[in-house]
């Protein structure tokens, strides 16, 4: 698994390439935790290149969403492959986590409300 991190005006974007399982999930957890420590509050996790996710990956996503909510931030996921999406649906995570079709949509959803 590789994690590519970029910062846009309104959000931090993490693009995950490969497989998110109990072996690789701790690396994502560390990366995201460090970003939050560095002030990240609005995050997009781009799943376009993610081929696989297990419950260990779901756990990190859930923890990130909770941490950001507590800090008045927001997490939006995007561009899920069908099989990965199915894991979110079976676990019920799609009912409380915003999932956008594309990274562009996710950036719009994650942006702070206009004054």
């Amino acid at each position: 698994m590789e994690i590519y991190e970029t910062q846009e005006e309104n959000a931090w974007i993490f693009r995950i390439d490969g497989r998110l399982d109990s072996n690789t999930a701790p690396e994502l957890e560390t990366t995201v935790f460090r970003a939050i420590e560095n002030g990240a509050r609005r995050m997009v996790i781009d799943f376009e290149a993610l081929a696989y996710i297990s419950s260990a990956g779901l756990r990190v996503i859930l923890k990130t969403a909770k941490d950001l909510k507590r800090l008045d931030g927001k997490l939006v996921l995007c561009a899920m492959q069908d099989y990965v999406r199915e894991v979110f649906e079976i676990s019920g995570f799609d009912t409380f986590l915003p999932i956008a079709p594309t990274a562009g949509d996710a950036l719009r959803q994650v942006a702070p409300p206009k004054e």
């Binding site: 297990s54 419950s55 260990a56 779901l58 756990r59 894991v87 079976i90 676990s91």
Partner: peptide, 13 residues
């Protein structure tokens, strides 16, 4: 708890 989600996935699949 997360182990519970894992087993839920196992049962469903």
């Amino acid at each position: 708890r997360i182990g519970g989600i894992g087993l839920h996935l196992v049962r469903r699949l």
